[in-house]
Nucleic acid binder design. Structure first.
Length: 351
DNA sequence: AAACAACTCAACCGCAGAACC
DNA sequence: GGGTTCTGCGGTTGAGTTGTT
């Protein structure tokens, strides 16, 4: 434990020590409410204690151990009282944050798995910046971690694409380019698993292109080991693109979009393997995941294999009116007129 | 090797709502 | 019912790390 703590305390960037007075003074001066005055009083009071200045900045190993030991003995909660009782010259807030985001034994560290990333993208598309709500669906992950992930990775992609992270354009890119890619990686990582986790279900949906807050419709066909999705825009229902994936690595399927772009994903059989063994867990998954309306469709698809056509509604598909234009945004200088064929791998390499 | 830029992430802040007195 | 305190959330910051020139 000590070793871990030392490593943790040594690594990572963070604020060091109290902020310069210059940065806090204007805030203090502007704070006129009684509440703020009270809070300032608390800080002063704590600072005025026996050789006690309220500590800020990175936690030391000793502080971590003190907090861990105290919580192990007395439990968590009542953070202000806890901070005082434990002898930590910290605010209750600081103690709570340190415990929840870092010291809790069940906090999972390290990079997000593809499944986790997929889940984050999906949940954020539904709930927005409800970080704690999203974190609740990812055991061991904290809202802070997810928030950081979103800001550093996802917003970076949006910036690179020169569009707003909340724009329909970017959401479409996530759904049709990023999420299938993540699903592919997640499936590859768990090809031997037959779990019926929400993430496994999500992988299927990412492959199928199903999503939330998007419109038009998508026709998904399972044919001889190939998943074929034909999307239509909401207005005229005419096919605007075809994205085909295959479950057979030896016989890749590909189809050209109406405007000339092709997206091909070579998958393994893990998408089928992701179906629950018993078969009735799909309803539970669907219920658990609220509006995952395609769960039963996917069950049929995963179980049946043969020729099936599954039609599921989407709300709005602005991107699909010109998928090639969007795909073009990932490349440099390509135009629809060139009719160049891009695989998703190509697209992501360019990206 | 040095300088700079970009990225990461722990920790902070203000605010709102819940809980308590 | 009203004031105070506590808790939790989302947004922001900036030191340290990593990558690039």
């Amino acid at each position: 434990m000590e070793m871990v703590l030392q490593q943790r305390a040594a690594g990572g960037g963070c604020r060091l020590g109290p902020r310069p007075a210059a940065s806090t003074a204007p805030v203090m001066a502007a704070a006129s409410s009684a509440k703020h005055e009270q809070e300032q009083e608390e800080v002063k009071e704590a600072a005025a204690g026996p050789d006690a200045e309220l500590r800020r900045g990175p936690w030391t190993v000793d502080e971590d151990l003190t907090l861990i030991n105290y919580i192990a003995e007395h439990g968590e909660g009542r953070w202000n009282a806890l901070a005082r009782a434990a002898g930590l010259n910290r605010t209750g807030k600081s103690c709570r944050l340190r415990w929840l985001n870092y010291l809790r034994p069940d906090v999972k560290r390290g990079d997000f798995t593809a499944d986790e990333q997929l889940l984050i993208l999906d949940l954020h598309s539904r709930w927005g910046n409800r970080w704690s709500k999203i974190a609740a669906q990812l055991p061991g992950r904290t809202d802070n971690e997810i928030k950081n992930y979103w800001r550093t990775r996802v917003q970076k992609h949006a910036k690179q694409l020169n569009c707003d992270v909340n724009s329909a354009r970017f959401k479409d890119a996530m759904r049709f380019l990023w999420m299938p890619r993540l699903a592919e990686r997640a499936a590859a990582a768990q090809s031997s698993s037959s779990s019926a986790s929400p993430a496994a279900s999500l992988r299927q949906q990412a492959i199928s292109g199903d999503g939330h807050g998007l419109g038009g419709s998508a026709l998904m066909t399972a044919n001889a080991g190939c998943f074929e999705m034909t999307t239509t825009n909401g207005a005229d229902r005419s096919p605007s693109s075809v994205v085909t994936t295959t479950t057979s690595s030896s016989s890749p399927c590909s189809s050209r979009t109406s405007s000339g772009s092709t997206a091909t994903v070579n998958n393994d059989d893990s998408y089928k393997a992701a179906a629950p063994a018993g078969g009735d867990d799909w309803a539970a998954i669907q219920q658990d995941q609220e509006s995952w309306s395609t769960a039963s469709n996917l069950q049929q698809l995963a179980a049946g294999g043969g020729d099936q056509q599954l039609l599921f509604p989407l709300a709005d598909l602005p991107m699909m009116q010109d998928l090639s234009g969007w795909v073009q945004g990932f490349s440099e200088g390509a135009t629809p007129e060139t009719h160049q064929l891009w695989s998703l791998d190509d697209i992501w390499r360019m990206h």
